[in-house]
Amino acid sequence: MLEESTPLIGCAGWSIASAQKASFPLAGSHLERYGAVLPAVEINSSFYRSHRPETYQRWGDSVPENFRFSVKVPRTITHHQRLQNVAPLIEGFVQEVHELGNKLGCLLVQLPPSLRFDPPTVHAFFANLTQQTSAPVVCEARHRSWFMPAANQLLQEFGISQVIADPPVAPCEELFTGAKTVYVRLHGSPEMYHSAYSEEYLSQLENELRQYQAQGKTAWCIFDNTASGAAMPNALSLLARFKRKNAADVKVRA
């Protein structure tokens, strides 16, 4: 069972490579095996295509009670429509993902690098989205205009934090993290989607996640460096750090 002090650590997708199969149970679907070890996952396939409500329900039924899903908002909303005239699309998406029930932990809005911050458009979009769901929402903006006080103020109005991404678009101190959810999304550096993170980096990351938790925030850490299979080893290594610390704390209290 996952300790309450462990962040929501996971990968973008739940595939298990043969190199890591020994870390997971042998029986069950990939998701069932993944969910027996890791506490969270980011559903990326929702970005490319719609899933039936019963599919989300089946996924939710496949994992432990304390497991949480992050679901990426479809590109038809973020990239094709660029947040404009999307009310029916939002409604359909929200109806689908709500079949995850209380295992829906977060909605991820990733924006195209070319999308500038436009206050009226952004206000209308997030007002619509947050009216239709009580799930936390995080935003991964990728144009520098989003990392200014006006954008941070608007996101704060809706209780939304910007994703802390690596590589970053702007310095992390400019990101609004006043919301209750902090979402760290690691794409791999120096080579995006391929590079593994060092143990030194993971040690620093552990400390940062603990600091967010000490502030009373729900901390997510999703590894998206999946192209060369680095995400899963990084996620397992980070999770092991928290488990070792939790076990040591229990021993001290005993």
Rank of each mutant, 00 (worst) to 15 (best):
G92W: 01
V94C: 11
T76K: 15
R116G: 07
W59I: 00
S62P: 12
T55H: 02
G101H: 13
V86F: 01
V109H: 07
H98E: 12
S114C: 12
Q57T: 02
L100M: 11
P120N: 04
N102M: 12
P64E: 02
P112Y: 05
F93P: 13
L115Y: 08
T55P: 03
P112G: 08
S114W: 10
Q95D: 07
W59R: 00
V86P: 03
G101M: 11
P120M: 10
S70R: 12
E99C: 04
P119Y: 09
Q95C: 04
P120E: 05
V71W: 13
P120R: 08
R68S: 11
L108S: 04
C106E: 11
R68A: 11
P119Q: 10
H98C: 06
D61W: 04
N85H: 05
T55W: 00
R75Y: 05
P112N: 11
L89W: 05
L83S: 05
L89R: 09
E54D: 14
N85T: 03
S62I: 12
L104S: 11
V109G: 09
E54Y: 02
L108Y: 07
Y56G: 02
G92N: 13
N66K: 15
S114E: 10
E96C: 08
A87F: 06
L107I: 13
P88E: 04
L115F: 09
P88N: 01
P113F: 07
H98V: 03
L104D: 08
R116W: 02
P119A: 14
L108W: 08
L108C: 09
G92V: 06
L104Y: 13
T78W: 03
V73E: 04
G101R: 15
F69E: 14
C106S: 12
L111H: 11
Y56S: 02
H79T: 14
N85E: 05
Q110A: 04
T55R: 00
V73P: 06
E65W: 06
I90C: 12
L108M: 14
E99G: 04
N85Y: 02
L83H: 02
G101T: 14
Q95L: 06
Q81V: 07
T78R: 11
C106P: 10
Q84D: 01
V73A: 04
E65A: 15
F93L: 09
T55V: 03
T78E: 02
L107R: 10
I77E: 06
L115Q: 10
H79Y: 05
F69L: 08
P64A: 12
L108T: 04
A87C: 00
R75V: 00
K72V: 06
N102H: 14
V109P: 10
N85S: 08
